[in-house]
Computed example of a mutant assay.
Amino acid sequence: MKKKIALILATGSLLAGGAALAQPADRGERGPMTRDAVAERTAERFAKMDANGDGVINPADREAKMKERFAKMDTNNDGVLSETEFTTAHQQMRENRKERREARAERRGGQQMRRGGRGGRGGGQGAMLKRADANQDGQVTQAEFQTAALARFDRVDANGDGTITRDERRAARQAMRGQRRGQ
């Protein structure tokens, strides 16, 4: 039962933490973002998500990440998570999240995010990867991953100049909110 709880926690944290990995730009970034910078960042993010280094993102990568997270939480390496290990890991994740939130707020000049985390956007990493899987084979290659990220970039780059400005990001967010509300 404890192992099952840990796997559920690891899966949830992987999905929540990975949701932003496929995004074309850092949400905390204030300045313009070029298409070339997005391509470079996308390649870096793909490498991080390709846990087993086989050149595709697929269920094997998620399984490898889950095992890695479980092993990290299982501090005494007995293959079972005790209540103490589980609580300690959960507390550490909360502290890490708080530190990241504070760092983002500091970069924004003290402004806090208006919504509570990434969970409210719907779909998470799984949905983004599914949309990126152009040939629907259950795997996302680096080419598919980059193509999807650059397509998102191009949708936001309203004037097509190869750079997304703060105003273009803001307009894209507002348009997305409008779509979610059914406007």
Rank of each mutant, 00 (worst) to 15 (best):
N58D: 15
G110M: 11
G110P: 04
M49S: 01
T84Y: 04
N58L: 08
K98G: 02
A39P: 04
G109D: 11
K67V: 12
Q111A: 13
R62Q: 13
K72Y: 04
P59F: 03
F70S: 02
M49F: 11
E63C: 06
R104S: 05
H90M: 14
F46R: 03
E83Q: 10
R69K: 14
R115C: 08
V80A: 13
N77K: 15
A89L: 05
G120L: 05
Q91P: 01
I57P: 00
E68F: 10
Q111T: 09
N52E: 13
E83L: 12
D61K: 03
E99Q: 08
G117T: 09
A39F: 02
I57G: 00
Q91M: 09
R100N: 04
N58R: 06
D74R: 02
E95Y: 07
R100P: 01
G119F: 11
G110I: 09
G119R: 10
N58A: 12
R118C: 04
R97G: 01
M66C: 05
G53M: 08
A39I: 00
K48R: 15
M113D: 14
A43Y: 09
E68K: 15
R100E: 01
Q111P: 02
G109A: 11
G120S: 14
D74V: 07
R118G: 02
G110R: 03
A43T: 14
T87I: 13
R101V: 03
